[in-house]
């Protein structure tokens, strides 16, 4: 009971501090901008710990953060091989293949107006479908190992990527195209000097969306069958054994990997599209 009250008290204190910070004079500084969400996150974690201990929740319902941290620290090798199997092979492999294929297809589609008008609606339609459902089929075709997971990822990232790149290649003004025409520029010159650079913000938007999809695809596809390694495999078997600390450990890894993946793409985006209004500082 004391722990529960402590949790509530902690919340009250944190919230008071945050309200002060957010409405204080130094609210605009980057330190405060970082501090406020950090404080919020840490308080939530602490409350989680206190509530779990206070209510003596069994591990099969909700393990405390300390238990999860212990599990992450204690299962390094297992988590690493799972990470290698699911993220490095399945997600990244599929991501690379899918994005490259979408890029080449987009260039091809863009060349012919007829193809673009036909493929774009179909592509946007497919992009809105729950493609992760193809996982059982692809597992059947490509086996239990990472190849089938990569195939699911390829399918998942291909269409959002295609739609974004094709839309990006269209994102030039009449004036910009006229300018290239007054230079009597060839098709390829127009593509490389105008349309590809102009498409960069769209391409990165697609790459960012796809980075999240790739993680989801690789993990969920393992629910349909996998070798005895992989993050999705570990999650589904640990759930079966009610070893929820292991499940949470894998989720921590997945969250870190997912945001790191996204962060890297966003960083490259900042480097390459510094000129875009949304990126200028």
């Amino acid at each position: 009971m004391i722990l529960i009250i402590a949790a509530l008290a902690l919340w009250a204190i944190m919230w008071t501090v945050n309200v002060r910070l957010a409405n204080g004079e130094s609210a605009g500084t980057s330190t405060v901008r970082l501090l406020v969400p950090l404080l919020f996150g840490l308080t939530l974690l602490a409350m989680w710990e206190l509530v779990v201990r206070g209510l003596e929740l069994p591990i099969v319902i909700l393990p405390a953060p300390s238990v999860i941290a212990e599990r992450v620290a204690g299962s390094g090798p297992t988590l690493w091989v799972d990470f290698k199997q699911t993220f490095l092979k399945g997600a990244l492999g599929g991501y690379a293949i899918g994005c490259t294929a979408a890029f080449l297809t987009a260039i091809l589609v863009d060349r012919w107006d007829f193809l673009r008008r036909g493929l774009l609606p179909v592509g946007s339609f497919v992009a809105a479908l729950p493609i992760v459902g193809t996982a059982p089929i692809l597992v059947m075709w490509y086996g239990f190992d990472w190849h089938s997971k990569a195939a699911v990822v390829v399918l998942m990232v291909f269409f959002p990527m295609l739609v974004n790149i094709v839309a990006g290649l269209q994102d030039t003004t009449q004036m910009q195209r006229d300018l290239m025409k007054t230079y009597a520029a060839s098709y390829w010159q127009g593509l490389f000097k105008l349309r590809l650079p102009a498409a960069m913000p769209f391409i990165f938007n697609g790459l960012k969306i796809s980075s999240t999809l790739a993680m989801i695809g690789a993990i969920v596809a393992e629910f349909f069958g996998s070798p005895i390694v992989g993050m999705g495999f570990r999650i589904s078997t640990s759930v079966g054994q009610l070893a929820l600390d292991m499940v949470w450990a894998e989720i921590v890894v997945a969250a870190l990997a997912g945001s790191a993946f996204y962060g890297v793409v966003a960083l490259i985006e900042r480097r390459l599209t510094f000129w875009h209004p949304s990126q200028r500082r």
Binding site: M175, P197, W275
Partner: peptide
């Protein structure tokens, strides 16, 4: 009418 310089 507009400069139309490439921002990149």
């Amino acid at each position: 009418q507009a400069a139309g310089l490439y921002p990149w």
